[in-house]
């Protein structure tokens, strides 16, 4: 009896080892590519939303999660659907993950996102991230070369934020402050620091970016010179010909790797600088007279 038991235990251990090494069914895990399942070649479409919450889902080459309603909780929204170009498209096997990631910068450009958000050249965004999803290896082998470009709202820690907002045309909408780029400068003795930290305009800030910058040379040391250089961009941002009375041009300086750049900004005219929230960007079809909203 004892002998039988001793013989059985190693057999069980052997079977368990093989099962746990993946040689038997019953182990939770991703289905192998060769599994007898139908290859889904569902064509992704613009405006679809997805729930992507982990770094692994975000960084994967492909995403096969089901689409959800954009009015419901989601983290990603498709703003562009395109195709893998040649010569990579001609490969029988899907290119490496790193090759695809490199491709995303070209295939999912920020300019396309700006169009989708109904932004202009003077609209700068913050707290957003772009990623591209490619066909799975099996879909690639079946001929698919479709690329899905998704936009995410990201927290300061870069994790995707869950939202129920539809991002299509969001820069022209009333809630655009949560995706617009603003700067928070330090206020010391009633004087603003030259530099400022990035934040969204829905958070307390001191300056709103107008998506224009230039290198700071000797001619741009004084604040007045900087304001003068930035004025045309601020006017374009506000969609006005003359600077409204309640608004001032407020550039900030960004030092990056020793290089100094002046970033043009705008803010409500204040007797003494104080943080404010919202955006001065005009709603679609309007011009801003100086009141922040959002």
């Amino acid at each position: 009896m004892r002998r039988n038991r001793l013989t059985v235990f190693p057999a069980i251990a052997l079977a368990a080892a093989m099962a746990l090494a993946g040689c038997a069914p019953g182990v939770a895990g991703p289905a192998p590519e060769g599994a007898a399942k139908a290859v889904s070649l569902d064509h992704p479409t613009v405006d679809q939303c997805h729930v992507i919450t982990t770094p692994e889902e975000y960084g994967a080459s492909s995403d096969s999660s089901p689409a959800v309603a954009c009015s419901g909780p989601h983290t990603a929204q498709t703003f562009l659907v395109t195709s893998v170009p040649e010569p990579l498209a001609g490969q029988s096997e899907r290119p490496l993950h790193e090759q695809l990631q490199n491709l995303t910068t070209r295939l999912c450009p920020a300019a396309e996102l700006r169009k989708y958000l109904a932004g202009t050249d003077r609209d700068a965004t913050a707290g957003m991230a772009i990623t591209g999803y490619y066909p799975s290896r099996l879909e690639w082998a079946a001929g698919s070369r479709t690329v899905r470009c998704d936009v995410f709202l990201a927290s300061p820690g870069r994790a995707p934020l869950e939202t129920t907002s539809d991002l299509k045309g969001a820069l022209a909408g009333p809630d655009s402050a949560q995706i617009r780029l603003c700067y928070a400068q330090e206020i010391k003795d009633g004087v603003l620091s030259a530099e400022g930290k990035d934040t969204t305009c829905s958070e307390p800030h001191t300056t709103e970016d107008v998506s224009a910058w230039f290198g700071q040379d000797a001619s741009l040391v004084s604040l007045a010179a900087q304001q003068e250089r930035c004025l045309p961009f601020v006017l374009e941002f506000l969609k006005v010909d003359v600077l409204p009375a309640g608004v001032e041009v407020r550039p900030i300086v960004r030092i990056d790797g020793g290089a100094r750049a002046v970033r043009c900004g705008v803010a409500p005219l204040q007797a003494s600088p104080e943080p404010w929230t919202g955006t001065l960007a005009p709603l679609a079809g309007t011009a801003n007279g100086g009141a922040a909203h959002g």
Binding site: P30, E56, L96
Partner: peptide, 16 residues
């Protein structure tokens, strides 16, 4: 957490 597709598996390919 329920992963779909290549999000679970080898980094960069999702293979088991």
């Amino acid at each position: 957490h329920q992963f779909a597709g290549e999000a679970c598996g080898a980094v960069g390919s999702g293979e088991a």
